[in-house]
Write a protein that binds this DNA or RNA. Structure first.
Lengths: 244, 244
DNA sequence: CCGAAAACGGAAGGACCCGTCCACTTCTGG
DNA sequence: CCAGAAGTGGACGGGTCCTTCCGTTTTCGG
């Protein structure tokens, strides 16, 4: 049925073992650094990232590589040399956005009001989804190769978990709210926002309001049972482009 | 050019209008019916519909035409002759599913309990989304060409509106629930279900429970304001395949 | 200033998918 | 039974996108 079998990319392991070419004198454990780039190359790299950011935000992660290249004013080869895989480009582009998330969470934790902190995170994350069509997929996808990306996301998740716990202990958030419910919210909001438009923003706000209404637990009396949390899996990266 | 063209391809074998098994010798031009199909052609048509139903359910509306043809055991030409456009195939395949929807709504209206009726529709529709990956897109897409498809959907929507009103008047459903909120729910659920999996079904149930919690209005005391309903547009058919 | 290494752009080779065309096959009615 | 119309399948031209390859241009240390 499916003869194609995209297996291929087993080569993806760039950093495997002995990388002969780079003597790596200073020993920057951060690795994969864009160091020692020729000036024009560095310039182009920045242009590519900028173009990709715009393109992903406007049209989602499935933008043709050639479109990114054109937008950046470079040839496709340049793009591929700098970012051998779409994944590498995506993780690089969304690193900042992810940092923003962590910032949002930290800020919320600093808020003395547990519920307002919780609510703010939900609202802001959903707003980011509206503002950036690629954000959801990037955030909800597992990138086994991008170590620091994964670490950063985990940090955001952990912070949100703390936020959740605090709101629950204060009695504002229903006790059966699960950590995976954030994923639930994000996927739901993604569905609403998918067709970007002005109306989408309004719809998203309404959705969020409904969610918050459901999450809130001060009307404790009547909250009925909820189906089990059922951990929602993250996307696998290859799924993002496979269904086409 | 071509004012109505393919308008009625109904051929719905049984129910359509006054099913005149007779070749309708009087005025055949009005009918444009696909009757008079050779036996093998009719057989193939059925196989195609069956294959398309399966394919759409399993992988969404973006299945390659060739895949449907292969699955049906026919050549692409046969598929294209019977269904000149993907749209015609989709509307034909989902005509039944749409009828099911109307049935669900009617059944719910027959339920003496207004809230249970309302709730049941939400639950069943979302369950249909889980069971059929193509359902959401088909239901939420505007098919200007498929008159009876549109009519049927409108009937379902009208029924749901009645259901909504009834539940609101009985005081079970919050007064600011808008008709377009059904679309909101469907899109949100679609987002959750998009990555079909076992977990998706559970996630969908949880989502629905949250929604119902938010919609319910017997804890009237504390329902905060909601952002405006903001009519969520349907998909345009060309959008379904354009973003690729 | 100069030459080698690095970087560049575009072309080219695959892989899909769409929708049409045409030579061949299969019904059907007399 | 048989001729011809209805029906069929697969090949084909036209697109889009991915990824690599290669001749040319640019940078930069000496």
């Amino acid at each position: 049925m499916d003869p194609d079998s995209t297996a291929s990319d087993s080569t993806a392991s760039d950093s495997t073992a002995s990388d002969t070419t780079a003597p790596d004198p200073a020993g920057p454990d951060t690795a994969a650094g864009p160091e020692r780039l020729r000036s024009d190359a560095r310039h182009n790299r920045a242009r590519i990232l900028e173009a990709a950011r715009e393109a992903f935000a406007a049209r989602g992660l499935d933008v043709p590589m050639a479109a990114v290249a054109r937008r950046a004013g470079v040839g496709v080869a340049t793009l591929y040399r700098r970012f051998p895989t779409r994944e590498s480009l995506v993780t690089e582009v969304f690193a900042d956005r992810l940092a923003d998330c962590v910032g949002v969470v930290d800020e919320a934790l600093a808020d003395p009001d547990p519920w307002r902190g919780f609510r703010t995170v939900i609202e802001k994350v959903c707003a980011m989804q509206v503002a950036d069509r690629g954000f959801t997929a990037a955030f909800l996808t597992e990138f086994p190769g991008a170590v620091d990306f994964e670490r950063e996301r985990m940090r955001a998740e952990r912070g949100f978990a703390a936020l959740t716990r605090r709101a629950q202990e204060a009695g504002y958030l229903r006790a059966d709210f699960a950590r995976t419910d954030l994923t639930l919210v994000m996927k739901a909001n993604d569905g609403v926002v998918a067709e970007s438009s002005e109306a989408a923003a309004a719809a998203s706000r309404r959705l969020v309001a409904y969610f918050l209404q459901a999450f809130r637990s001060d009307h404790t009396t009547s909250a009925p049972d909820l189906p089990p949390p059922a951990p929602i899996g993250l996307y696998r990266f290859d799924l993002l482009t496979e269904g086409r």
